[in-house]
């Protein structure tokens, strides 16, 4: 491999890592809910679509950027609360698989609802971030991807410190660790659940804006969940750090595979390659890279 080929490989890998951050961002929405509710919330992708559609439609209706952001935030919070009330609470104490199936139905409701309200056309979303690539040491990096990754990282840091240093955050962790104990010491589970669903809504908004600016705001945005799922499986459903590492790993390996393996099999392998990577790792470590080792009690 000569120097230019090497640089090219690095460039591909860096591009992959940056999009990996974006995968991780969506995956974190899942992790938040999984940690407190024990649910794999398939509707997370629909929430991403809903958030982006709402925001872009407000902006198109001449609502100022900042106001649109606040309004969308409030709507996402309300959506999260509504889901918690109407879907999760009636299904409390049911098997995790039942809850999962309910979120499949929920995904259809939110996707359908978002498009029914705001229409099905594709919207362009301009966040004012330049998309011009710039060069560092011979490799080109997309400015947008870099800024997006930075925003995603900032969000992760904010979330992590929220859960580590604030009272609400700590009680969230208590719920995640031991629901019964949390109830016993008088934590109000419903309020915490609602807070978490709201937080997941916020994550969905950020993800929706970044992905929407990249791909255009349209139905296919809800399919970013399909990118996030292998990340989630690989990182472990309950680990934010896992989601980030797995996101980077999958982002990079996927792009490299597309460039170096793709041509031999006709291309387009990014739809499933991530799943193969995740499965291969899982067969060796069933709990994922960072998930808790599953110790069952009998």
């Amino acid at each position: 491999m000569d120097w230019f080929e090497f640089l090219f490989a690095v460039e591909v890998a860096v591009g992959g890592l940056l999009s990996g951050v974006m995968y991780a961002l969506v995956a974190i929405g899942f992790v938040l809910i999984y940690k407190t509710s024990g649910v794999l919330n398939f509707a997370q992708g629909a929430m991403v679509l809903f958030a982006a559609l709402t925001f872009v439609s407000l902006v198109e209706r001449e609502v100022p950027f900042a106001l649109a952001l606040v309004v969308t935030l409030v709507i996402m919070g309300l959506l999260g609360l509504a889901i918690e009330r109407t879907v999760l609470r009636p299904l409390a104490n049911r098997s995790p698989m039942t809850l999962f199936m309910a979120t499949l139905g929920l995904a259809w409701v939110i996707e359908g609802g978002a498009q029914l309200i705001w229409g099905t056309q594709v919207h362009a979303l301009d966040l004012g971030i330049s998309n011009a690539p710039f060069e560092i040491g011979g490799i080109y990096i997309s400015n947008f991807d870099l800024v997006a990754a930075a925003i995603a990282l900032a969000l992760v840091i904010v979330l992590t410190s929220f859960f580590r240093f604030t009272r609400t955050g700590l009680s969230f962790r208590a719920v995640a660790d031991d629901t019964f104990a949390a109830i016993a010491i008088g934590l109000r589970l419903n309020r915490i659940q609602a807070a978490v669903w709201t937080a997941a809504g916020v994550v969905a908004l950020v993800a929706g804006l970044l992905w929407g600016a990249r791909l255009g705001v349209q139905f296919s945005l809800s399919l970013v969940v399909l990118k996030a799922l292998p990340v989630l499986v690989l990182g472990g459903f309950d680990s934010i750090a896992g989601a980030i590492v797995a996101g980077l790993l999958i982002g990079a390996s996927e792009k490299l595979a597309e460039v170096y393996i793709g041509p031999f099999v006709g291309g387009g392998i990014e739809g499933w390659f991530a799943y193969v990577v995740a499965l291969a790792v899982l067969l060796i470590r069933p709990q994922g890279l960072f998930g808790h080792k599953i110790t069952e009690r009998f």
């Binding site: 109407t86 879907v87 009636p90 299904l91 049911r94 039942t98 199936m101 309910a102 499949l104 139905g105 929920l106 995904a107 259809w108 409701v109 996707e111 359908g112 609802g113 029914l116």
Partner: peptide, 14 residues
């Protein structure tokens, strides 16, 4: 249809 079908799933599960 999508909305109603999705809601039907949730209602049945509940």
């Amino acid at each position: 249809q999508r909305i109603i079908l999705g809601a039907t799933i949730i209602i049945f599960l509940i």
